[in-house]
Design a protein around this nucleic acid. Sequence first.
DNA 1: CTCTCCCT
Length: 829
Amino acid sequence: MSPQESLPISDLIPDLKLTLQKTSTAIVEAPPGAGKSTVLPLELLNESWLEGQKILMLQPRRLAAKAVAARMADLLGEKVGQTVGYRVRFETQVSSVTRIEVVTEGILTRILQSDPELSGIGLIIFDEFHERSLQADLALALSREVQQVLREDLKLLIMSATLDGEGLSRLLDDAPVLTSAGRSYPVAVRYLPRDLDGPLPALTAGVVSRALDEESGDVLAFLPGSWEIQRTLFILQERHPQLSLHALYGELPQAEQQAALLPDPQGRRKVVLATTIAETSLTIEGIRVVIDSGYTRIPRFDPRTGLSRLETVRVTLDAAIQRAGRAGRLGPGVCYRMWSEVTQNQLQASRPPEIMEADLAPLVLDLAQWGVKDPAALSWLTLPPTAALRQARDVLENLRAISGGTITPRGKSLLKYPTHPRLAHLLMEGEAAGQGALAADVAALLEERDPLPRDTGSDLYMRVEALRRWRAKQGTEGDVAALKRTERLAQQWRRLLKVPEENTRPTHEQLGLMLAWAYPERVAKLREGEHLRYRLANGRGVRLKEHDPLQGEPWLAVAHLDSGTDEGRIFLASILNIFELKADFREVETVSWDSRSGTLVARKDTRYLELVVESTRISHIPEEQRIQVLCQALRSEGLHLLSWNETSLQWQARVQSLHLWRTSEGWPDVSDQALLDTLDSWLGPFLQNVRKRDDFQKLDLPSILTGLLPWDLASRLDDLAPPRLEVPSGFKVQLQYFKDGSTPVLAVKLQEMFGLLDTPKVNGGRTPVLLHLLSPARRPVQVTQDLRSFWQNTYPEVRKELRVRYPKHPWPEDPWTATATRGVKRRDP
DNA sequence: CTCTCCCT
């Protein structure tokens, strides 16, 4: 029996009918090709529990939604729009007798928002749920709440192709799982003995050649992106000129995509190099051999910047299975996996659900409309991550769509435009400004693929011009398929806004303003002295590619950019007249320290978010602010701006030592850090006349520091931590204190200490100083804290050596009774 | 080497 004649899903139908009669939520697990999408809805249509209500079936793709509806209608011998209809954005085929509506995922959210009771709907089927799209996750969360709160009779059926029905069931309060077999043919998998290393195109081309040699039939190879596809194509063209070779990826013009899907008209052997587009979205006729390079490109949304960037990563296990399955649609097939069995065992099971990695601004706006401030109030399969939620709220607050987490009237209006809130904002503002036709063109261009080749530069103006010239039949620049798609979308926006098409030339400034409506935080200002580098209104750095036509423009409104590690790159932008955004300007007076000139600068800035539009110098500076800024300058440049000398440094070390030694007496902490932390209070009052760096040096630091000590402590300072000590020679010798409280050092010539028995002490007699005993030439002879022991044990040895080297100096055998001296031997009288 | 793939 051929697979086309049997539908494995049929075996499961009686069971499913019974299950849905008893429970409100069920899971059907069936691999692709089981026939579930068309057979199940029709089978369930006349169940008594449905009470004549409608079935909604969700599909992740528009194309699939229409195709599934068409197949079902066909099975009933009807046209689409009778019993079976569909709804996708801007396109509806339903009538008053329609019982099954196939809808794309975003549509369900809209239906729920407009009628939370889902009147007249008895069952919602989530098809391809294993894809875990953001929209499907949201729709399920909302539907479950409806089921729990408003509609206990509402049934949910989740259909999934993957193996983890059990996990899904746990998350859905142990909903029953029904499993069906697929109808695909076996695919033999061949692994490499070990992982290869090197550029992917050359490796893939090698495996393609090998497969052509070993196997018969057409070949489909999966590569991460268009660059690798083009490189591989180039290599294979040289090597196999007789083959029918095709690339297949989303950006390719329609005709080339079609050629890749159909069998070669001349009957040649076909090799198709494709991206993930061939995993689920497009099916290629007659493939028997699949080659999986093992890599795929995915977007990573960075919540810090609100931007996403593409990364090339290893395929996940479920994608690898899906890819291999593409070889078994017509008969037994073969799949070459370009990795080893060791790597196979380390593959991740599946990609994280989209909700983990996506821009959540649309979701947050939908939740706000639903009346939910905190997403945790709903039950999710995967809770949306907090960093992305925060970023989404920022964006929506910027668009004034929410305020304090609650939806505003403006936010409610945005939801009337079926698109991302940013583009909705553009359309709404454009409409209000009487520029609806242009807003429609710009919104369409922003959403569709770029019609111009990538070396055109980043100016949006050229895209608008290309679209309008093509529409007015005045010329064709760029990809016609992309222009067609864009125009179709623009037309739908015009219909919604009720405006006629316009083909005149817009001004650059109009375009800039429109982009700023959609991306207010991506207004960019050229950096001083640069022609490619800009700063965004949110503070990030971005740059144009070399030779971009927009280079040197003082202001840009940026639409698309990537989040590079350091500087993002601008892909699409427009010239902007920043004064068009006057309503959002703020005036800010700033006093700052210019560390280059070492002066105080006061300015009045006109700002747009973080960017300075205009800046004028002002002369008057409020005293309090000036002192604050001076203190900040000291913090950033350091205490050395002040006129520290030996005396003040030693004062600091002495007081700090006492602070550390005598903790109970209230000696203040005068470490550098503590001084910096308390600048405003101890130094502030002395800064009246400071305007520039040199003025700091003129301050009388020693007397300012003295003010830090309360009177009673000040009077004890010289006693407890004397700056100098008198030694037996009669001289006063400087003591060296340390900020970390280590033992103060008395560096003194050995001979000046004759006659002294014990080590001198400071700190009220508690701390013997550390003696650095010096030779007559001031070379260190000994370091000790115990003078008595030195005289007894070490001095005799030292003496022997020193009397030879310094014979003119006295080296008495008995240092205790000798007279201390600084000079040479006194001549005997 | 910007450009995987979708969706209201």
